[in-house]
């Protein structure tokens, strides 16, 4: 299948991308790795008139330790996240989770920023950055602003990044030696999660248990109060409203959330 016609433009900096977005307005879409956007265009679920390619902007692709955080350029590819020594040392959850995204070919193209802004509730990385409590640096016509993880994911495939804005950087706190784990439940290895759970340093996030990735706050509270993994996990599905699809109904998803949370907590405590 083939996308509807569009104009292809290449941005050479974040600011250039913002300019182009301003110029073309709602007609335009940013293109990073294209691993979510191009399938959408091929199935003709969207037909932007202009694509602004940011995948080759050199200063959007980097990983560097910056104080208590690691700063990651939005156009950093999954592969580079997986292989980053800094991340493996400072935030081991993130490269581990990036390794679950799609398959090797997809990780050779897809980017951290693309995955986060695409904001599929079933995706891996949104869940991971939520558990990590990342901060997002967003650039728009009036300059840069910072968004907390808790504010970033706003709805089904919706984030705090406006149509005239670009995500430029993701800042993840260094978790160092804190316990962490990721439990992804799939039928086939390169599928999106039916349910997934990321746990790090007493924080727990769930994928595909609602319209956005969600923090399992009841579980986190129980943990903070000294509950065992099994006890804390019992409330993992509290306050969630997962979809029903051909893989799982609501009750089963809730059950999976509890089982996976318990397993993640056991591993993280490990």
């Amino acid at each position: 299948m083939i996308p509807a016609p569009f104009r292809y433009l290449r941005a050479d900096s974040a600011a250039h991308a913002v300019d182009l977005l301003g110029e073309h307005g709602d007609e335009a879409k940013l293109l990073a790795g294209g691993q979510s956007l191009l399938p959408v265009l091929k199935l003709r679920l969207a037909d932007p008139a202009v694509l602004i390619d940011i995948s080759r902007v050199p200063d959007l692709s980097y990983i560097r330790v910056d104080g208590d955080e690691v700063a990651i350029g939005a156009a950093t590819r999954h592969r580079d996240v997986v292989e980053s020594e800094e991340l493996r040392r400072e935030v081991p959850l993130l490269p581990h989770v990036a390794g679950y995204v799609g398959d090797r070919q997809i990780r050779h193209r897809g980017t951290l920023g693309g995955s986060l802004v695409h904001a599929d509730p079933a995706a891996d990385l949104p869940c991971a950055v939520l558990a990590l409590g990342a901060t997002f640096v967003v650039e728009g016509p009036s300059g840069q602003r910072r968004v907390d993880a808790g504010e970033f994911f706003q709805g089904y495939f919706q984030t705090a990044v406006g149509a005239d804005e670009i995500l430029v950087e993701v800042r993840v706190p260094r978790t160092g030696g804190a316990g962490w784990a990721y439990e992804k439940f799939v039928r086939r290895s390169n599928d999106w999660a039916i349910v997934a759970v990321a746990a790090v340093d007493g924080r727990v996030a769930l994928a595909n248990m609602g319209e956005t990735p969600l923090r399992a706050t009841a579980t986190e509270r129980a943990l903070a109060g000294g509950a065992s993994p099994a006890e804390a996990a019992a409330s993992a599905a509290e306050g969630t409203s997962p979809i029903e699809d051909m893989h799982a109904d609501r009750a089963y998803r809730a059950h999976l959330a509890r089982v996976l949370t318990e397993r993640a907590l056991v591993t993280a405590a490990g």
Partner: peptide
């Protein structure tokens, strides 16, 4: 890479 999901322009 999957060449069905890369633009020739890229």
């Amino acid at each position: 890479v999957k060449s069905c999901t890369v633009l020739a322009a890229q």
